[in-house]
């Protein structure tokens, strides 16, 4: 049986991203002045998990051949909200968490409703809604501040058994609870089909609009989990435009590095997570090799460009040039 060959092919992007990440992280850790210690891993994990969550959010939409430029702003908005409401008695904390996640869900649903039922382009729609979400964040937190429940924060950003960062466990839990069932559900399959060929999906009787809508909703939800996590790490909220913007752009970079096609239809959120971790490690690598941090954006850009080039090799095989524009 050659099953393994096809299974490997299906997950090639994810596996490549994983391999590259491990390679980079090993180089990073072995050259770290302190060495490969639990502390180094924990710091890296906390930083990486944030981008990983936002990248995962982006993946849902990119798979349907759309794009969500509001993920970073949902992330910031839910951070500001969490810094106000996830505190107090355990019941209030629980309610606060639910409130934060619901907010993310609603943000995603608004994006989805406008894109699908209003038939507007995803880029413009999400730039606009992103600005609105950021505006609300500013109203909530004109100046940085706020607080978050300490117990929960410590529990989710610390370590288990002294070595494993809990942020990674939380990330794995999100993957298991949201991504894996999605990927294996009929609606997740529909999302892939829509991204790959919307016409074929429609002709096959796939619920095209529902699949797209749910992708935006899932994106908003996962971005809000990211925002919640940011609050646990910083124990405060800040309506930072720079943060929102860079997380949005980095999430797209991470998705591409993780082997998700920007044309939709192929890739996996797990790949995007490794793409995010890889992207974070690039920055850290420069640090351990004592390079000026000023080089960081340039270096990240080069890596991204190389990854995109790899992804478009197939264009050289096209025989009808009109196919290039599809």
């Amino acid at each position: 049986m050659s099953d393994w060959r096809y299974r490997l092919g299906e997950h090639r992007g994810t596996l490549l991203a994983f391999a590259f990440f491990v390679l980079m992280f090993v180089i990073y850790a072995s050259n770290h002045p302190v060495g490969f210690t639990a502390n180094v891993v924990q710091t890296a994990a906390n930083k990486g998990a944030l981008l990983a969550l936002v990248a995962m959010a982006q993946t849902f939409v990119v798979l349907t051949a759309g794009i969500d430029l509001s993920v970073g702003m949902v992330f910031v908005l839910t951070n500001c909200l969490a810094s106000s409401i996830v505190i107090g008695s355990p019941a209030m904390v629980a309610l606060g968490v639910v409130g934060v996640l619901l907010t993310g869900l609603v943000c995603g649903a608004i994006n989805g409703a406008i894109v699908i039922y209003g038939r507007l382009q995803p880029i413009v729609t999400t730039i606009a809604t992103g600005a609105i979400y950021f505006g609300i964040a500013l109203v909530l937190r004109p100046v940085p501040g706020g607080d978050v429940d300490g117990t929960l924060s410590d529990a989710l950003t610390g370590r288990v058994f002294g070595v494993i960062p809990t942020s990674l466990i939380a990330l794995a839990a999100v993957v298991l609870v949201i991504w894996v069932p999605y990927r294996r559900s009929a609606i997740g399959r529909a999302a892939y089909a829509v991204g790959s060929s919307e016409v074929a999906a429609y002709m096959s009787g796939v619920p095209v609009r529902r699949a797209k809508f749910l992708a935006y909703v899932a994106s908003g939800l996962v971005a809000s989990i990211g925002g919640l996590f940011l609050t646990f790490i910083t124990a405060s909220g800040e309506a930072s435009a720079a943060n929102g913007g860079s997380y949005t752009l980095y999430s797209i970079a991470a998705v591409v590095l993780g082997g998700v096609s920007l044309f939709g239809g192929s890739g996996s959120a797990i790949g995007a997570i490794f793409g995010a971790l890889m992207f974070r490690t690039i920055g850290d690598l420069l640090f351990v090799f004592d390079l000026d941090p000023l080089w960081q954006p340039l270096f990240q850009g080069l890596v991204l460009l190389a990854a995109v080039c790899l992804g478009s090799v197939r264009l050289f095989q096209i025989r009808n040039r009109l196919d290039l524009f599809e």
Binding site: S185, G195, A200, S204
Partner: peptide, 22 residues
Amino acid sequence: VPDLSVADNISISNPPKRFGLI
């Protein structure tokens, strides 16, 4: 659908399910 497998395509409009998943 080009990016999905043959089996995915054959069952695309109503895939067999167990516990709600494909």
